[in-house]
Computed example of a mutant assay.
Amino acid sequence: MTPARLSLAQPVPDEATPYHTEPATVRLRGQHLRLGYGDRVICPQLDVRIPDGSFTVIVGPNGCGKSTLLRSLCRLITPQAGQVYLDGKQIRDYPARTVAQQLGLLPQSATAPDGISVLDLVSRGRYPHQSLLRQWSPQDEIAVQTAMQATGVADLAGRAVDELSGGQRQRVWVAMALAQETPLLLLDEPTTYLDIAHQIELLELFRHLNRHNGRTLIAVLHDLNHACRYATHLIAMREGRIVAEGAPGKVVTADMVQQVFGLPCLVMADPVSHTPMVIPRGKVHMA
Rank of each mutant, 00 (worst) to 15 (best):
Met1Lys: 11
Met1Asp: 11
Ser7Ala: 13
Leu8Phe: 02
Gln10Tyr: 07
Pro11Cys: 06
Thr21Asn: 13
Ala24Glu: 14
Leu28Trp: 02
Leu28Ile: 09
Leu28Thr: 03
Gln31Ser: 14
Leu33Ile: 02
Arg34Phe: 00
Gly38Leu: 05
Gly38Arg: 05
Asp39Gln: 15
Asp39Cys: 01
Arg40Phe: 12
Arg40Ala: 10
Val41Gly: 02
Val41Cys: 02
Val48Glu: 04
Val57Trp: 00
Ile58Phe: 14
Val59Pro: 10
Val59Asp: 10
Asn62Gly: 11
Cys64Thr: 13
Ser67Asp: 01
Leu73Trp: 01
Thr78Pro: 04
Gln80Leu: 15
Tyr85Ala: 14
Lys89Gln: 15
Gln90Tyr: 00
Ala100Lys: 08
Leu103Met: 09
Leu105His: 01
Leu106Glu: 08
Gln108Tyr: 03
Ala112Gly: 09
Ala112Gln: 05
Asp114Arg: 15
Ile116Met: 13
Val118Asp: 03
Leu119Val: 11
Leu119Tyr: 14
Pro128Ser: 11
Gln135Gly: 14
Pro138Asp: 11
Glu141His: 13
Ile142Pro: 00
Ile142Ala: 15
Val144Ala: 04
Thr146Leu: 03
Thr146Gln: 14
Gln149Asn: 09
Gln149Glu: 10
Gly152Phe: 06
Ala154Ile: 11
Glu163Ile: 01
Glu163Leu: 12
Ser165Val: 05
Ser165Tyr: 05
Gln170Glu: 12
Trp173Met: 04
Val174Cys: 14
Ala175Phe: 01
Leu178Ile: 11
Ala179Asn: 07
Thr182Glu: 07
Thr192Asn: 15
Thr192Ser: 15
Ile200Pro: 07
Leu202Glu: 11
Leu203His: 01
Glu204Gln: 15
Leu209Lys: 12
Gly214Ser: 10
Thr216Asn: 02
Ala219Cys: 10
Leu221Thr: 03
His222Tyr: 07
Asp223Gln: 09
Asn225Gly: 11
Ala227His: 06
Ala227Arg: 06
Ala231Trp: 03
His233Trp: 06
Leu234His: 01
Gly246Ala: 10
Val251Asp: 13
Val251Pro: 11
Val252Ile: 15
Met256Thr: 13
Met256Gly: 07
Gln259Ile: 00
Phe261His: 06
Leu263Trp: 01
Leu263Gly: 04
Pro264Gly: 09
Asp270Glu: 09
Val272Asp: 01
Val272Gln: 07
Ser273Met: 06
His274Gly: 03
Thr275Met: 15
Pro280Trp: 08
Arg281Tyr: 04
Gly282Asn: 02
His285Val: 14
Ala287Leu: 09
